[in-house]
Simulated assay, not measured.
Amino acid sequence: MTKFLLSVHVLAVIVAIGPVCVATSMFPPAARRVIEAPDDVRAAGTLQLLHRICKVYAVVGVVVLASGFATASNMRMLGSAWLNTSIALTALAALVLVALVLPRQSALVEGGTGGATRQATVQLGMFTGVFNLLWAAVTVLMIVRPGSTTGA
Rank of each mutant, 00 (worst) to 15 (best):
A94L: 15
L5P: 00
K3A: 14
V15F: 06
L6T: 04
L50H: 01
T149C: 01
V98M: 13
H51N: 12
A16M: 05
D39V: 07
V15A: 12
L141K: 11
A91E: 03
V98C: 01
D39A: 14
G18P: 00
G18H: 07
V13A: 14
V20W: 07
V13R: 11
S106T: 07
V138A: 09
A37T: 13
L11K: 07
R76K: 01
L134N: 03
V13K: 02
T71W: 13
L134T: 01
M75L: 15
R118H: 08
T149I: 05
A120L: 07
L102H: 04
F127G: 02
V64M: 11
V22S: 10
G18I: 11
R145H: 14
A94K: 05
A43C: 10
L92A: 15
R32S: 03
A44H: 05
L92S: 12
L141Y: 04
G68F: 06
V56P: 00
A43H: 04
I14H: 04
M77R: 02
A72I: 04
R32Q: 10
A44I: 05
S148Q: 15
T121D: 02
S148L: 13
A152C: 09
G147L: 14
T128P: 01
L97S: 02
L97C: 07
H51T: 03
V63N: 14
R118A: 13
L47P: 05
V60I: 15
K3E: 11
S80N: 14
V15I: 13
N132H: 10
V64C: 13
L95W: 08
T24M: 12
L89Q: 04
L124H: 05
G68Q: 02
C54M: 09
A70Q: 08
S106F: 06
L65M: 14
C54G: 08
V98I: 10
G68Y: 10
D39F: 08
V101I: 07
P29T: 04
A91D: 06
M26S: 10
A30H: 00
F69A: 06
S148H: 14
L78T: 15
V98S: 08
L6W: 05
T128I: 05
H9W: 10
A44P: 02
R42P: 02
T139Q: 04
M142Y: 03
Q119M: 15
S7M: 09
I143L: 12
E110R: 09
K3P: 00
V96E: 04
Q48S: 14
F131V: 05
E110P: 00
T90Q: 07
L108D: 00
H9T: 11
T150W: 15
A58T: 09
V140Y: 10
A23P: 00
T24D: 08
V96T: 05
V130W: 09
L50V: 02
I17A: 14
T117A: 03
A30I: 00
A37E: 15
L5I: 03
V98Q: 12
M142H: 01
T71V: 10
S106L: 07
V8W: 06
V98L: 12
V122M: 13
Q123Y: 08
S106D: 13
N132Y: 10
V56F: 14
L100G: 01
F27T: 01
T85D: 07
